[in-house]
Each structure stands twice: as structure tokens, then as C-alpha cells.
């Protein structure tokens, strides 16, 4: 546990010195939150069906955020280690294999969720100010479940995908671009909603949650194998 903390703290100090990462994890959340606010603003006074569609799009921004933030962080945390030749010295320490894996995952997941939820809070406050109240659609059970249950699952998904991809390439840009595909599951709601114009409902949330749990389990299985010392030392490129 103590070692895990040591690792995570080092990672954050290091990531904090990379401009790309700072832009990615401060600028993007604000931008997405701004878009979401804009959607809600647009929906004021519209019939409830049209308003629901705009709210759905707003929600989607909050599902993209928890994937995109950890992708940036995880890619740099893994590729950076390879690029700088620090993997072998790191592996020589008493750090356990699982600690390396969990540490690197936490490095990305924790800020992703903190930022997503922080921006969501800002969004609610802004909505309240703009509309003089929060429309019930924004704090319905499916919304809250999406924000507080789907987001962590999406963040984990983003992290796992980017860690797997980063272990296979030492080019952060390539890793970053490929890992961007992790955002696809976040778009599922948009596709469904915009085709049917139905408001976000429990069934959809449960379905997407179920898909993510399965995907995450599969990825976790692969990742645990990839994060063994010997594997890291001999197979990572």
C-alpha cells in the first residue's frame, strides 16, 4: 500500500510537467462541460421531446470525459516509462506486479472521475443559474446512474484500452490516437437516443453498464497477463 502511494505520487508529479497532459485534463473537461451547458441552454422553452434529445447529447459529454481523460494520463504514464528506460530499474524494486498495474490505473482513473464529477457539479450550478432551476430530467435516476456508475466503468475501460495499446508501442502519439477509439462505447447512448429520440432510460443504462462490465473483465484478464515483470521486460516494445 505504501509503495502504491509512492508510485502514484511520482506519476502525478511527472504528468503534471507534461503540457499535453495538462491541456488534455483541464482544457478538455471545461470544454465538454461548456458544450453540455450550451445544450441545456438551447433546450430552454422547447417542447419536452426536443428538450430530452438535447439533454441526452449533454449527457454524452459526461460519458466521453471519463474515457478521454484517463486515456491521456495512462498513455503517458506507460509510454513515458518505456521512453525513458525506467522500466527495468522500476521492476528491480520490491514493487509487486499488481502494484505497478493498479498504480498506473489509479493514476488515470482517480483524476478522471474527480474531474468528471467536478465538471458535472459546475454544470448543475451553471444550469441552475441559467434556468433558475435544474430541470428534473438532469437529475433523474438514469442520469445519476450514468454519471456515477457508468463513468467509473468507462474510465476503467479507457485506462485498460490505453494501457494495452501503450504496452505495444513506444510512440505516445500513435498510442494516444488508437486509444481514442476507447471512446466508442460512450457514443452508444447517442446513437440509440438520436435514432429513437427517447430520453435516457434505465434499460439503456443497464445495457451499457452490462456491456462495459464484460469488456472490462476481458481487458483486465489480458492486462494482468501483460503486466508481469517478465512480460514487461521481454515483450513490451
Amino acid at each position: 500500500m505504501a509503495r502504491l502511494k509512492v508510485l502514484v505520487r511520482k506519476e502525478w508529479e511527472e504528468l503534471f510537467k507534461i503540457k499535453m497532459v495538462i491541456y488534455g485534463s483541464v482544457f478538455m473537461p471545461l470544454l465538454m462541460g461548456g458544450f453540455a451547458g450550451f445544450m441545456v441552454w438551447q433546450g430552454r422553452g422547447l417542447p419536452s421531446g426536443a428538450q430530452a434529445a438535447l439533454f441526452n447529447t449533454a449527457l454524452m459529454y459526461f460519458l466521453i470525459l471519463p474515457v478521454m481523460i484517463p486515456v491521456t494520463l495512462a498513455v503517458y504514464s506507460v509510454v513515458g516509462e518505456k521512453e525513458q528506460g525506467t522500466l527495468e530499474p522500476l521492476l528491480a524494486t520490491p514493487l509487486a506486479d499488481w502494484e505497478i498495474f493498479v498504480g498506473k490505473a489509479l493514476v488515470a482513473v482517480v483524476p478522471a472521475l474527480a474531474l468528471t464529477w467536478g465538471v458535472f457539479l459546475l454544470f448543475l450550478v451553471a444550469t441552475h443559474v441559467m434556468l433558475g432551476g435544474i430541470p428534473p430530467g438532469l437529475v433523474s435516476l438514469p442520469w445519476l446512474l450514468s454519471i456515477f456508475v457508468l463513468s467509473p466503468l468507462l474510465a476503467l475501460f479507457g485506462v485498460l484500452v490505453s494501457m494495452l495499446i501503450s504496452s505495444r508501442t513506444s510512440d505516445p502519439r500513435a498510442a494516444y490516437q488508437f486509444s481514442g477509439l476507447a471512446v466508442v462505447p460512450s457514443l452508444i447512448p447517442l446513437i440509440v437516443y438520436s435514432a429513437r429520440l427517447t430520453a435516457v432510460n434505465l434499460l439503456l443504462v443497464a445495457l451499457e453498464g452490462g456491456i462495459l462490465v464484460l469488456l472490462n473483465l476481458g481487458l483486465l484478464y489480458v492486462a494482468v497477463k501483460l503486466f508481469r515483470r517478465e512480460e514487461i521486460l521481454t515483450r513490451w516494445k
Binding site: V6, K17, Q84, P89
Partner: peptide, 26 residues
Amino acid sequence: VLTETPGFYKRLSVRRNLLFFAELYG
């Protein structure tokens, strides 16, 4: 272990690098 090509976290200071490893070794 002094590895064949020893790398460091190049954005962190000399002291911070060493401190990280010292802490990992407890």
C-alpha cells in the same frame, strides 16, 4: 541493480528521482 541502460524520470529533479526509489525500497 545498475541496469545496462539506466533511465530516469527526466522531467523530475535529481533528488526527486532518488527519493522515489528510496521510498519504493521502504
